[in-house]
Computed example of a mutant assay.
Amino acid sequence: MNAKYAALLVIWPLPALAQGFAGMGTGAEGFAMPAPDPVFDFPADHGAHPDYRIEWWYLTANLDGADGQEYGLQWTLFRFALAPETGEGWSVPQVWMGHAAVTTPTDHYVAERFGRGGIGQAGVAADPFEAWIDDWRLWGPDFGDLQMRATGAEFAYEMQLDAQGPLVFHGADGFSVKSASGQASYYYSQPFYAVEGVLTLPEGEVAVTGSAWLDREWSSQPLSEDQTGWDWFSLSFDSGDKLMGFQLRQTDGTEFTAATWIGPDGTTEAYPDGAFDAEPLGLTEVAGREVPTRWQVTLPDRGVDVTVEAMNGAAWMGVSVPYWEGPVRISGSHGGRGYLEMTGYE
């Protein structure tokens, strides 16, 4: 799910905020719209879909350092279209935004970049795969064997990613419904990456290993006008099972939810609205607001009743459209680690 939608505030007029978070409840006349029963075409669908209004390549990682410390890592590239037309050079109506972050138990380092399509500054190629904005890159011979790098004022990282399992598809074979009125996206993930590399922090370099989860999603109007933000969980359990779950908060105080259970072999089961539940247990004051950073997450059909707690409650993304994103630890019926993203907290 992720803060990808937040990117649109950069280009959408401020009055649009009244219609869904960052204007994503507004109409999308002229753009393509997701439809049920999608037929994906790989490797082409790893690349960009400029007929749709917004898209992202969104990677998070839970890492263990050679120094005995845990780390979290984020690398994200967003594409959003200013208009449903084509062009050349500077007239190409595609804007790109990158977010990179490193989280430690005590610090959270963030960087943001913007680029234009059509001039080579940013983009995505499908075969061989390459996603880039300036010198930030995610690339490799295919989607299963990737390298990744990014730099910020206080950090840098170079990582190697090796997929240990298949792609997984959310919702109905990749058609992910986001509201009772039918807004939707195309949504698949590669949640099985093994990662190794080097983080560079103010204290110096540290070798790291761990696991990563990459989300791919595109749409043109994925939210309804009464949805104000979301809480998104990607949880990797010690058993080898995984759970993606999200709730979209609505103006009447209710939530629309969806979830995907992922077995160690990549088999999936999708869960509709109401099956997954996330209830805040504790708040952290960060960036002048209170954000829930400790949750009770349940999926009764799978016997999941866990506490999900931020490794660092201050993992605030102070970017153009701010949000919270950071690594979490899992305890209760299942143990493990994962990532949490939260938007729309004022």
Rank of each mutant, 00 (worst) to 15 (best):
residue 134 D to V: 00
residue 134 D to L: 00
residue 138 L to Y: 08
residue 139 W to H: 14
residue 140 G to E: 09
residue 142 D to S: 08
residue 145 D to W: 04
residue 145 D to R: 15
residue 146 L to V: 03
residue 146 L to S: 06
residue 147 Q to K: 14
residue 148 M to P: 00
residue 150 A to F: 15
residue 150 A to L: 12
residue 151 T to E: 15
residue 153 A to C: 02
residue 153 A to F: 12
residue 155 F to S: 10
residue 158 E to K: 11
residue 163 A to N: 10
residue 165 G to W: 12
residue 166 P to N: 08
residue 167 L to G: 08
residue 168 V to E: 11
residue 173 D to K: 05
residue 174 G to C: 10
residue 174 G to D: 14
residue 175 F to T: 06
residue 176 S to F: 15
residue 176 S to W: 14
residue 177 V to F: 06
residue 178 K to Q: 14
residue 178 K to I: 04
residue 178 K to C: 06
residue 183 Q to Y: 03
residue 183 Q to T: 13
residue 183 Q to R: 09
residue 184 A to G: 03
residue 184 A to M: 04
residue 185 S to R: 03
residue 187 Y to L: 01
residue 187 Y to F: 06
residue 187 Y to V: 01
residue 188 Y to K: 03
residue 188 Y to V: 04
residue 190 Q to K: 04
residue 190 Q to P: 01
residue 192 F to Q: 10
residue 192 F to N: 03
residue 192 F to T: 05
residue 192 F to K: 11
residue 193 Y to M: 01
residue 193 Y to C: 04
residue 193 Y to L: 02
residue 193 Y to W: 10
residue 197 G to K: 13
residue 198 V to D: 11
residue 198 V to K: 13
residue 199 L to C: 08
residue 199 L to V: 14
residue 201 L to V: 11
residue 201 L to F: 10
residue 201 L to K: 12
residue 204 G to K: 01
residue 205 E to G: 05
residue 206 V to W: 08
residue 207 A to Q: 15
residue 207 A to R: 15
residue 208 V to D: 08
residue 208 V to W: 08
residue 208 V to F: 05
residue 211 S to T: 12
residue 212 A to N: 04
residue 213 W to P: 00
residue 213 W to G: 03
residue 214 L to R: 00
residue 217 E to Y: 06
residue 219 S to C: 01
residue 220 S to L: 00
residue 221 Q to G: 02
residue 222 P to M: 01
residue 222 P to G: 08
residue 224 S to E: 10
residue 224 S to Y: 02
residue 225 E to W: 05
residue 226 D to E: 07
residue 226 D to F: 05
residue 226 D to L: 02
residue 227 Q to M: 09
residue 227 Q to I: 04
residue 227 Q to K: 07
residue 227 Q to P: 00
residue 228 T to Y: 07
residue 228 T to A: 09
residue 229 G to N: 06
residue 230 W to R: 05
residue 230 W to D: 07
residue 230 W to S: 04
residue 231 D to G: 01
residue 231 D to R: 03
residue 231 D to H: 13
residue 232 W to D: 03
residue 233 F to D: 02
residue 234 S to R: 05
residue 235 L to C: 01
residue 236 S to R: 14
residue 237 F to Y: 07
residue 239 S to E: 04
residue 239 S to N: 05
residue 240 G to K: 05
residue 242 K to H: 13
residue 242 K to E: 13
residue 242 K to W: 10
residue 243 L to K: 11
residue 243 L to P: 07
residue 243 L to G: 08
residue 243 L to T: 12
residue 245 G to W: 02
residue 245 G to F: 07
residue 245 G to E: 02
residue 246 F to T: 02
residue 247 Q to T: 09
residue 247 Q to P: 06
residue 248 L to S: 13
residue 248 L to A: 15
residue 249 R to K: 12
residue 249 R to C: 08
residue 250 Q to T: 10
residue 253 G to V: 13
residue 253 G to L: 12
residue 253 G to S: 11
residue 254 T to W: 04
residue 255 E to I: 11
residue 256 F to D: 05
residue 258 A to K: 13
residue 258 A to Y: 09
residue 258 A to D: 15
residue 259 A to L: 11
residue 259 A to R: 09
residue 260 T to M: 07
residue 260 T to D: 09
residue 262 I to P: 09
residue 263 G to D: 09
residue 263 G to Q: 13
residue 264 P to C: 14
residue 266 G to W: 13
residue 268 T to V: 15
residue 268 T to C: 04
residue 272 P to I: 07
residue 274 G to T: 12
residue 275 A to L: 11
residue 275 A to N: 04
residue 276 F to A: 11
residue 276 F to M: 07
residue 277 D to P: 01
residue 277 D to Y: 00
